[in-house]
């Protein structure tokens, strides 16, 4: 499968000269299968540019939302294929303990927050409460589990029979763990990530920043590295960059993280437009 990063920023879109290289769009990742099936992971502001590249001949799209924080859904109403009649769009995301996905998502996709109602979109998207289990979508096998992050939040493990992608953009597995990590059985997200060819994981904070944000649902870079080591992944993509981290700072953080190596995996910092083949 081919994976393209369309938005790598966390929390808030961060346009500006200081973020132009890593990009300021929030979470969105495109996954293309060998038969060109299209998965979209999260609908942050990066999904707008992705939408402009989707061929009019594409008739089915699956959007997998990890959770409904604004930085992961804000771009949904700007995804051009949703306005095409005849495109079959399936949106998956977690329900809460009291509300289904449609009810939750409608709070955003309706006035006064957004002028177009979900039900008025020409594509009439199909909404699915994502099952907390394994399921099939086109040529992909997807495993979905709840992970440590405030509110109902899932991570995804996606395989196409060949490679495996693990996507945990908002994840705080170190929450409450004095010496992270504990053993694998007690580590949030472990089964999603284990032995993945590519792990896209939350690295929002430096360790000093994490100490000031414990419980906010995000990882320090050191935690993501420890998690990747525990899960024995082949490549770790640093993702969900803090909106206050400039290109220069992200370069420095990657270099500093690399200095703590060598690691049994490749360490990459996610940049908008970056592509991976697995």
């Amino acid at each position: 499968m081919r994976i393209t990063l369309w938005g790598t920023r966390g929390s808030l879109p961060s346009a500006g000269p200081e973020t132009v290289r890593y990009g300021g769009n929030t979470s969105c990742v495109e996954v293309r299968g060998r038969s060109h099936a299209l998965l979209v992971l999260d609908a942050g502001t990066g999904i707008r540019r992705l939408g402009g590249t989707v061929d009019p001949g594409v008739t089915r799209i699956h959007i997998l939302l990890t959770h409904l924080h604004m930085d992961h859904i804000q771009g949904l109403g700007f995804f051009a294929p949703l306005y095409r009649d005849g495109v079959e769009v399936h949106v998956y995301g977690p329900r809460s303990t009291t509300q289904d996905l449609r009810t939750r998502l409608t709070r955003y996709l309706s006035p006064p927050l957004f002028p177009v109602r979900l039900r008025d979109l020409p594509s009439r998207p199909h909404l699915h409460d994502v099952p907390l289990s394994r399921f099939e979508v086109d040529e992909f096998t997807i495993t979905c589990e709840l992970v440590a992050h405030p509110g109902p939040t899932v991570g995804y493990r996606i395989t196409d029979g060949g490679g495996t992608l693990a996507y945990l953009p908002d994840h705080e597995p170190a929450l409450g763990v004095p010496r992270f990590p504990l053993d694998a059985a007690w580590t949030s997200g472990y089964e999603l990530a284990q032995r993945a060819d590519l792990l896209i994981h939350d690295t929002q904070y430096t360790m000093p920043e994490y100490v000031e944000h414990v419980g906010w649902g995000h990882s320090a870079i050191d935690h993501a590295i420890a998690f990747a080591r525990l899960a024995r992944v082949r490549r770790l993509v640093m993702f969900h960059h803090d909106p206050g981290h400039s290109d220069a700072m992200l370069d420095r953080l990657l270099a500093e993280a690399g200095n703590a190596g060598p690691f049994p995996f490749e360490l990459v910092s996610g940049i908008e437009g970056m592509q991976f083949e697995i």
Binding site: E145, L146, V147, A148, L175, G176, V177, A184, A185, W186, T187, S188, Y190, E191
Partner: peptide, 18 residues
């Protein structure tokens, strides 16, 4: 080895502080 459900993991973290 089966990973524990996240609710169980978070329950342990909470209990460890009580």
């Amino acid at each position: 080895m089966l990973q524990k459900q996240v609710e169980i993991i978070l329950m342990r973290q909470l209990a460890s502080y009580l």
